[in-house]
Design a binder for these strands. Structure first.
Lengths: 129, 129
DNA sequence: GTTGACCTTCCAGTGCAGGGGAAGGTCAAC
DNA sequence: GTTGACCTTCCCCTGCACTGGAAGGTCAAC
């Protein structure tokens, strides 16, 4: 199948597929006589995996690591577990810091509520932020 | 005071101050005869405001909006309230989506825990992600 | 008069994941 | 035989907030 067909089947664009190939996430595929990329449906699970990885918040570089391990003939389980652990730790830290920020901004907003323009002094641009 | 001195007083770099000026967050200041920027300490509250805004997660473009209102001689209170409201809504949405993602990844991680390499099938690259 | 720290402008690059568009080749249908 | 959809490579652009570095000017101290 040609690149546009594969793109549609995978829910992405031809541009993106060429980009993945350039980045090493997709193997270089065969070509037709006229130079068109010629894919089989066998690439679809790989593209699915890339999408699942992205949905989980992994970077293409991290996804490529897993694909490389797989392409070397090894099971990537251990590495995937490490990635998931790291991602969980990152998410927890991120959620904690956003929650703290949410509280701070909530405070600012409550203080700004009672304020009127006449209370406003210019010396700090805005005292409610 | 010269730019390096101001940068140190404000806890930033001369590069950043020039960048802020170019972006319109700092007014163009006077120059010495030799062409050096010449600042007064009066810019410090403005830089403080920029830092507070950044700490609250606002972009420089948003911070500039507030500064522009202030520079026009108006009180930015109303606009700041709107910005805070928007930021709160964004934060809530972000926290919700990260929390949902955290649950999903937690599930994946638990499923991967019982897995061993021998259970691993190559057809989807990794069944635990 | 020279060293070294500071300043000036300008250009380019960082990371991330592509998107836009030019210039040209190919293919199937009409 | 021509139209239109598709493909190829190529290079630049996006947003965000800077950062690095080159080439040159300035200033105070020694």
């Amino acid at each position: 199948m040609r690149i546009g067909e594969l793109a549609q089947a995978a829910g992405t664009t031809a541009k993106t597929l060429r980009f993945y190939e350039e980045r090493g996430l997709l193997p270089e595929t065969g070509r037709t006589l006229s130079g068109y990329r010629d894919y089989t449906r066998g690439v679809l699970p790989r593209l699915d995996f890339i999408h699942r990885g992205q949905a989980a918040g992994f970077t293409l570089a991290q996804i490529k690591q897993v694909l490389d391990i797989r392409d070397d003939g090894h099971a990537p389980c251990t590495h995937v577990r490490d990635l998931l652990d790291q991602r969980l730790a990152d998410l927890d830290a991120q959620i904690r810091s956003l929650t703290a920020l949410r509280a701070t901004i909530g405070d600012l907003r409550r203080r700004a509520d009672v304020a009127t323009d006449s209370h406003c002094r210019a010396d700090s641009v805005c005292q409610y932020l």
